[in-house]
Computed example of a mutant assay.
Amino acid sequence: MIGRVAPGKAVDPAEMRSAMLVVGDWLRDGTVDAPARAELAAAVRLSARTLAQIAPGASVEVRVPPFVAVQCIQGPRHTRGTPPNVVEMDPRTWLLLASGLEDLAHAVGDGRVTASGSRAAEVASWLPIVRI
């Protein structure tokens, strides 16, 4: 089953790429029917968890409701309440960023991404996760 990865388990790059390819046509063309919820969830979860693997740490939290929130990037650790550095967006925007079809600064500029905290923009250094 695609996308069923426990939070602590390493993401298989081939599985993540496969999940991203399933949503690729929809990402490139907004008129294409959206993928099934399970396919969308798999692509979001696997790509976000890959970000957490390649940029380990806990100074920035990336949120893609309703599917996933991950902590990433080395630096001061947050332990209680709302983290000081948060990047949040909808699933399609995340997948556009993760696939390199969109730029973080542009998505923040047009309001599709909220980024708070002095380190939130550092997420851009780790994108794209995989080009499709």
Rank of each mutant, 00 (worst) to 15 (best):
V113F: 07
A121N: 08
S18I: 00
P13C: 11
A105W: 10
Q71C: 05
E122H: 10
Q71T: 10
P84H: 03
P84N: 04
R131T: 15
T114M: 11
G57I: 11
M1P: 06
P65K: 01
L46H: 02
K9S: 14
G3M: 02
S99C: 13
V113M: 10
T79A: 14
G109N: 14
V130C: 13
V123E: 01
P91S: 14
D25F: 01
V108Y: 06
I2A: 03
P66N: 07
Q74R: 11
V113D: 09
I2D: 03
A69I: 03
L27N: 08
A52W: 05
E122A: 14
V11F: 06
D29R: 10
H106K: 09
M16Q: 14
V70P: 07
R77H: 10
F67P: 07
V22F: 03
G111M: 12
K9Q: 15
R37G: 13
R4C: 04
S59T: 12
T114S: 15
G24W: 00
A41T: 02
G30A: 15
R45N: 06
D90Q: 07
L21C: 08
P84C: 02
Q53K: 02
S99Y: 01
P128R: 06
A52K: 03
W26V: 07
V23P: 08
I129R: 08
A55K: 04
G81I: 03
D90W: 00
P66V: 05
S18K: 03
Q53P: 07
L104S: 11
P35F: 01
A55E: 03
T82Q: 13
A42C: 11
